[in-house]
């Protein structure tokens, strides 16, 4: 018979942000992705669980890795995945977001995975469709599956079994201001018990970011403006990409990439400040030579490719938990 004995179902209809999840929900997703990961290493990399379900990848902002990761995840769970990307879609022809949503609903999808340049777009869509919506990154708001795959990777390498990320010291370095990855990670990692040091130039550090998740994050998050302060004794070093496309012309936040690299770039010397067994992470794509030097990115302590592998597994878990129900609780 089935080994499921625990009483509680996954209590969410959508995955719009880590803010909606509690530590128990996050742990459930991480545990499930640990099991599903094995499917990706089998000769037949597919299970029939979501057979006949339709998953729409609605990516109205450029992305290759996240979209590919979701697409592979859907296919490995046997769902039919359809990609709609920004350029050439009706959005660029002037259709409103709600009209897009209504049109998609007429095709009866079971899950819509949405990336959008505007914060809150997936939440808006979720109110107007009767299928599950997964946020694949919206503006500078959240990118929940990225945070989940980061937590899965850290838990695997550094966590004590059964204790989440308890008491791990995690440094997140770079452009915190524009980073939805950082926001989702701040929420997820503190919920799992980690302590965070956020580091970057003052011009790229949002004000009061410590209290992003209320008192819970406030006591676990520290802001540093010097790299050595952030790295000292860290178990995990996560470097964020300098997002040139978001650092638009006329709003210069730092003099140039060479200067940024000098003060905030991770190289062998600065990495030596962290714990000797610290792991190095990056959500990709890396600007080699800017936020991270190639010898660190390709070094033994880099778990960047593990992050990619967990990306598929975590998204399979999300699709499994959200893609099945007909009309669950809101």
């Amino acid at each position: 018979m089935s080994p499921s004995h625990t009483a509680r179902d996954f209590p969410h209809r959508h995955m719009l942000g880590i803010a909606d999840l509690d530590a128990d929900d996050i742990t459930q997703i991480l545990d499930l992705s640990e099991t599903l990961r094995g499917i990706n290493e089998r000769p037949i990399k597919k299970v029939p669980t979501l057979r006949g379900r339709t998953v729409i990848n609605l990516f109205l902002e450029n992305s290759t890795r996240t979209r590919t990761s979701f697409e592979i995840a859907g296919k490995r769970m046997s769902a039919d995945t359809i990609n709609i990307s920004g350029s050439g879609s009706s959005a660029s022809k002037g259709e409103t977001m709600l009209d897009t949503a209504r049109n998609l609903m007429a095709m009866n999808p079971d899950v819509i995975i949405m990336r959008h340049g505007a914060s809150g777009a997936p939440a808006l869509i979720a109110q107007h469709v009767n299928c599950a919506v997964i946020n694949a990154g919206d503006g500078t708001h959240e990118h929940p599956t990225q945070a989940l795959l980061d937590c899965a990777t850290i838990r695997k390498h550094k966590g004590i079994p059964g204790q989440g990320l308890k008491d791990l010291e995690i440094a997140i370095v770079g452009d915190i201001d524009h980073s939805r990855v950082a926001r989702s990670n701040i929420l997820a990692m503190t919920k799992l018990g980690a302590r965070l040091r956020l580091c970057g130039p003052a011009t790229l550090m949002p004000r009061n970011v410590e209290s992003l998740g209320g008192p819970e994050t406030q006591e676990r998050v520290r802001v540093c403006y010097r790299l050595d302060e952030a790295l000292e004794g860290a178990d995990v070093v996560m470097m964020l990409r300098i997002q040139n496309e978001r650092l638009g012309a006329g709003t210069s936040r730092f003099a140039n990439t060479r200067e940024y690299s000098r003060y905030f770039g991770l190289n062998r010397k600065t990495l030596a400040l962290a714990k000797p067994d610290a792991i190095v992470m990056h959500p990709g794509p890396i600007n080699r030579g800017v936020e991270m030097m190639p010898d660190v990115a390709d070094g033994l302590r880099s778990v960047i490719l593990d992050q990619v592998a967990y990306g598929v597994a975590v998204r399979m878990a999300a699709l499994y938990l959200l893609g099945g129900g007909s009309l669950g609780a809101a």
């Binding site: 499921s4 004995h5 009483a7 179902d9 499930l32 938990l321 099945g324």
Partner: peptide, 10 residues
């Protein structure tokens, strides 16, 4: 799988 399966434990 999706007819009233409690919290899945795979």
């Amino acid at each position: 799988v999706f007819i009233g399966l409690p919290r899945p434990e795979v």
